[in-house]
Design a protein around this nucleic acid. Structure first.
Ligand SMILES: [Mn+2]
Ligand SMILES: [Mn+2]
Ligand SMILES: [Mn+2]
Ligand SMILES: [Mn+2]
Lengths: 228, 228
DNA sequence: ACATATTTTTAGATTTGTCTAAATTTTATG
DNA sequence: CATAAAATTTAGACAAATCTAAAAATATGT
């Protein structure tokens, strides 16, 4: 619970840093290093230091010199609101604007910075309160709550096990187009038939088709073994 | 016809200047002064000079020192594309997002800078190719063509004449809310019953209601006497 | 026409976000 | 533990867009 003083809008750059820091925090919890942020943001560590100081100043980050950062409660909430917008816009683009799932990310990167709470809540309603975006990533609700799911990487399933594909870890255009080409879609049940020790590739069955998937592919597909 | 070299994106600020210059050119054709642009953009003449030089450099404006500017063909086309986006987004917000016509302008000012031709063409389709925005302003098509309409200001109609309200000259929230409060809407036929010499106010009839409108109001309502 | 007012441009400063290069701190290693 | 390597921060510069104050050009009035 934080005080809602008359906060000025953040710049797009500030918002992008917060989002990057949130994502890095998910990948490996704990404190996040300057270098990691620089890598994620495709910029220099010195630029990161500057921005990190500003965000800490404004209360979005906890920061100790040379020790890295993590998000404050206020920063976490803000990051989740940006991610909510990003994923709702991606859903809009696919559901209503005839975009494919590999075309939406760049445009959502722009749209996520539009400032209007009403717009985003109306968009949510218009899309019938979707739970996940076109890539299977969960959409935080207006309070910043995200449904957590019991998920695994396909590459970690045992032989003879199966799971329903619910997301992708890498949502680059090239990976998404690979999946399209091989007719692998979210919602498909994937059975692991064989695992090759030599290169960690796996044989899977989807519907009535058998496919050979490299480790690079299998380790980027997220599956669930729970009932929905 | 201009060559489509690999143009970098314009900044939002550059786009806003182009739009302002376009609007000023409509208001009184000919050359546009630095001061007029500064007034429209709520900034200082010196800032205008800087920006005008850059836009001229890039071929969007014709500019001679101390002589003012006007849009080149390339600049006019670019301005129309931004206006197209603005008005399509306003239409979207009213038609699909439950916004009222007095709430949409500020958000459209943000959305008009989103860069995606496909998105804007899909939005056009999604909205069934609207001809006008929620304020009655015509929406340029994807080639930059705008339907011109035969319009007058209500204040210029003769006694006993009538016209259909097709637009507003001032689309500030306060004016739009005044119209809502007095149940004056686009599409209404307005009859001029009486004109008061003293203060230029007029008596009108809309449906079965009689209203007294000040000159300030009547001179901001656009009507047409043509059949649609 | 020519002094005065107005408009426009220039010069120099500021803010945001970035960069490179150098300095500092932390971490790893013999 | 001392020293080398790696990570991080500082210092100083730059580009975009803005500002104020001053200079230059244009317009106006008698
Ligand atoms: Mn995305
Ligand atoms: Mn996504
Ligand atoms: Mn508008
Ligand atoms: Mn409008």
């Amino acid at each position: 619970m934080y005080f809602c003083s008359i906060e000025k809008y953040m710049t797009q750059s500030e918002e992008n840093y917060l989002k990057a820091i949130y994502h890095l925090g998910r990948q490996n919890p704990g404190v996040i290093s300057t270098n990691a942020i620089a890598e994620e943001m495709q910029t220099k560590p010195s630029s990161v230091t500057d921005m990190v100081k500003r965000l800490a100043e404004k209360g979005y980050l906890n920061y100790r010199k040379y020790q890295g950062v993590n998000l404050s409660e206020k920063g976490r909430h803000k990051a989740l609101m940006i991610i909510r917008k990003h994923r709702l816009w991606e859903t809009f683009l696919v559901e209503k604007m005839n975009f494919t799932w590999d075309e939406v990310h760049e445009i959502a990167e722009q749209l996520e910075h539009i400032q209007s709470e009403k717009l985003i809540d109306e968009l949510d309603r218009f899309l019938s309160y979707p739970k996940v975006d076109p890539h299977g990533d969960p959409i935080p609700d207006r309070n910043g709550d995200v449904e957590s799911r019991n998920s695994k990487l396909l590459s970690n399933l045992d032989i003879n096990a199966s799971g329903i594909c619910i997301g992708v870890r890498d949502s680059s255009s090239s990976f998404l187009r690979y999946l399209d080409k091989n007719e692998i879609a979210l919602g498909d049940r994937i059975y692991v038939m064989e695992k090759e020790d030599f290169d960690d590739s796996i044989s899977v069955r989807i519907g009535n088709r058998n496919l050979q998937l490299s480790h690079a592919i299998a380790s980027n597909l997220i599956v669930t073994q729970e009932l929905e």
